[in-house]
Amino acid sequence: MTQLALVIDLNVCVGCHACVTSCKQWNTSGWAGPMVDENAYGADPTGTFFNRVQTYEIGSFPSTETVHFPKSCLHCEDPPCVPVCPTGASYKREDNGVVLVDYDKCIGCKYCSWACPYGVRELDEQQKVMKKCTLCIDRITDQTLPEAERQPACVLACPTNARLYGDVHDPDSEVSIAIRERGGYALMPEWGTKPANHYLPRQKNHMHISEEDLQRSDNPLTKEDITVYSGEETLDDVSW
């Protein structure tokens, strides 16, 4: 069975929010749209976003790490949001594992959002139905798009390519390899939700320099031996 998902590489994410707004623009006029904004030009502007980029600080000065952390629906393999839905509006697709909401069935009871530990569902406050990341279902399944473009909007936009997309059940896919080789992990594993989306941790490159590295025979200073002798006394003058 196919399980499509995103794998997010925290090692290169610079927190640019491209994935946030590219998601919004694709989806607002797409299958899952519109993505409504409230008080768009007033105080407390708020609106529907399927994807947020957050920032965390780890440690204290000067050993601080700043981590940018994008988060959208993780398309859990065992999604707690689905069975609780009383109408069947929330469902997980059989063919590719994407978790979706059918707005025509949704009664806006919000129960699914309570049942998602990740805080990725958003009620559209105007239309009063629950919305969430669709993994750009209307792009990835659109056979009229060229193959290379059959990817989520956020993945195509991401300038650092921090968002990998593919089938996490296919052991040879780019995402599965990345998870395997880079220590990809899931969020809040304690709930057994088995998120399909994974995160790749930070990695550090260090450089080691030994004393020998600094003392090499080809040191250019040896070519600048510019000692000037002015006839001062030496052992040759005073010993025998």
Binding site: N39, T46, R52, T55, Y56, S113
Partner: peptide
């Protein structure tokens, strides 16, 4: 566990938007 980083001191600095949201 929420962000998958093991360190004693972690603090959120930005939730990613500056007003309120459903969440």
């Amino acid at each position: 566990t929420a962000i998958g980083i093991r360190h004693r001191s972690i603090e959120q600095k930005s939730q990613g938007f500056s007003a309120s949201s459903f969440n």
